[in-house]
């Protein structure tokens, strides 16, 4: 029983960063900006969240800086893709390579190491302990050591849904993504909307970055993003850019990751367990597409 609660708990903690990134990916895909720089953006913002906190000891400032950095990266990405007509795939890979090099570079310049920095005296995001819940045995484990951003990510999914499907601005974004020529024939500056949407939604990745370095533990490791950006891309692909659907598809990946973690120490070796989230990503997409195909045929 306790074990189950722990699995759910770590699933929840795995969901939130992927969900936040997937929400950004959702906006980008709705406005037809193919963003695979998610991974690099996540890595960079995670690093800067850590760096800011390390020097300034101010959690709010760290979150703000992480969001700003993520928005910067997203701006560069969308500017190159939309304005300069760069090939999206290559722009994304370039930024990911850059992010990997840049963060490791700064890591070795500032901390004189290439592996991990794990300062013991650093205090990350506060773990919320909710009044009623902390007294219920099973539930308290389920919701233990979650930060405000973990909770916020689910709220943000709903907020993004409202923005995209209920407001004027969301309506316009979805519409211009469906047909850029129709939108521009009515005098809408499509490129400006695309860049603005991609840039602003970048701040969601910033929040995810904070979770990685200031959430569960306060540390930075080389490549700490660990393909979460790509997984989020797949998650968004599954839910077709719908913010509420993103909760479900992120949950799938969160769960498999948590499962892999919980099986550690069993007979199955760690390296094989680490394959599980990636294999299930492919499997989920294959199954979903096969299902969609069959549905379309009928």
């Amino acid at each position: 029983m306790m074990y189950l609660a722990q699995v759910i708990n770590s699933t929840l903690r795995e969901i939130s960063p992927i969900l936040l990134v997937a929400l950004c990916a959702g906006v980008c895909s709705k406005v037809q900006v193919f963003n695979i720089a998610l991974e690099g953006t996540l890595l960079t913002s995670a690093f800067f969240a850590f760096l800011t906190h390390y020097f300034l000891h101010n959690i709010f400032l760290s979150v703000a800086v992480a969001m700003a950095v993520a928005m910067c990266m997203s701006f560069i990405m969308s500017f190159f893709i939309v304005r300069l007509k760069g090939q999206p795939m290559i722009v994304g890979m370039a930024l990911n390579t850059f992010a990997r090099g840049f963060t490791t570079f700064l890591l070795s310049v500032i901390f004189n190491t290439k592996g991990a920095v794990n300062p013991s005296d650093m205090k990350g995001l506060t773990k919320l302990s909710l009044p009623v819940i902390r007294d219920i045995p099973f539930v308290s484990t389920v919701f233990s050591s979650l930060t405000a951003i973990d909770y916020l990510s689910f709220v943000l999914a709903v907020v993004m849904f409202v923005i995209m499907y209920r407001t004027v601005i969301g309506f316009r974004l979805r519409a211009l993504g469906m047909s850029a020529s129709a939108a521009s024939s009515l005098g809408v500056n499509v490129q400006r909307y695309q860049i603005a949407a991609a840039t602003l939604s970048g701040c969601l990745i910033g929040l995810a970055g904070c979770l990685l370095t200031l959430g569960r533990s306060t540390m930075f490791i080389q490549d700490i993003s660990g393909a979460r950006g790509y997984v989020a891309l797949a998650a968004n692909n599954l839910c077709k850019g719908h913010p509420l659907g993103a909760i479900l598809s992120s949950a799938l990946f969160g769960f498999t990751t948590a499962l892999a973690q919980s099986l550690q120490g069993t007979a199955i070796r760690q390296q094989l367990l680490q394959c599980i989230p990636y294999i299930s990503t492919i499997a989920a997409m294959a199954v979903y597409n096969a299902y969609a195909k069959r549905k379309a045929a009928h």
Partner: peptide, 8 residues
Amino acid sequence: EVCNIIEG
């Protein structure tokens, strides 16, 4: 990693 930056 300067090289990675340059490559990127």
